[in-house]
């Protein structure tokens, strides 16, 4: 009986001391002066659904999930938004996680339209920014967010209709991404988000 008790205690200690798997930093990296320098997402300046400016400082001290979308998208975006809402529901009480949904339709997705869209999704949370901006800038920034997710790096574009969700940490590093149309891949992504949030609490 005593031996069994010891085994139980030992097993509990082992299971409790299991470390959370640290997520890798994705993207290009190079060694400069003996120090590894990782890809960082570039600067951006957008306007959100309430007409407020959104820049990297909006997410200071926060991790955030990025996706590119447009409100009139008939096929991919509704599927992605459904999955993204699942992620949001799971982590909505965590202030260390924000959301950045960038519209690529600069012609029709005005601030009012983005507000309408956020309302339609029942998102009334300052942590989720639906943004628009200057067209060339939106596409330039996309390259910095999505370069890790493009399967074929010789083919420019495509990110505006491939439904990826990208996880950026508070140091501007990309830590995970998934196919936002695939519920199984999104499940895996949610575990990565959880790991990142846990890793930062340790």
């Amino acid at each position: 009986m005593k031996n069994i008790l010891y085994i139980i205690i030992l097993l509990s200690i082992i299971s409790c001391s299991q470390e959370v798997e640290k997520l890798p930093i994705l993207g290009n990296k190079e060694e400069i002066n003996g120090k590894m320098v990782y890809h960082e997402v570039g600067d951006f300046h957008f306007i959100d659904q309430d007409g407020n400016p959104v820049t990297p400082s909006t997410f200071e001290g926060q991790n955030y999930i990025v996706d590119y979308f447009f409100t009139s998208c008939p096929t991919i975006c509704p599927k992605v938004k459904k999955q993204e809402l699942r992620v949001y529901e799971k982590f909505k009480n965590n202030d260390k996680l924000g959301y950045l949904s960038v519209s690529v339709d600069t012609k029709y997705d005005t601030i009012q339209k983005l507000k309408w869209y956020a309302d339609k999704l029942n998102i009334h949370d300052k942590k989720w920014k639906f943004v628009t901006g200057e067209k060339d800038h939106i596409y330039k920034v996309a390259e910095s967010f999505f370069h890790v997710a493009m399967d074929d790096k010789t083919a420019p574009g495509g990110f505006n209709h491939d439904g990826r969700l990208i996880l950026v940490d508070k140091n501007k590093h990309i830590r995970s991404f998934c196919d936002g149309t695939d519920p199984v891949d999104v499940d895996r992504f949610m575990k990565d988000v959880e790991n990142l949030l846990t890793e930062e609490n340790e």
Binding site: Y139, G157, N160, H161
Partner: peptide
């Protein structure tokens, strides 16, 4: 209809790039 849309929609990014 959507098959045609989905095939060419990703090209919009390339069009922006070529225009630039």
């Amino acid at each position: 209809v959507m098959e045609v849309h989905d095939e060419v929609m990703p090209f919009t990014a390339e069009i922006v790039n070529l225009n630039k």
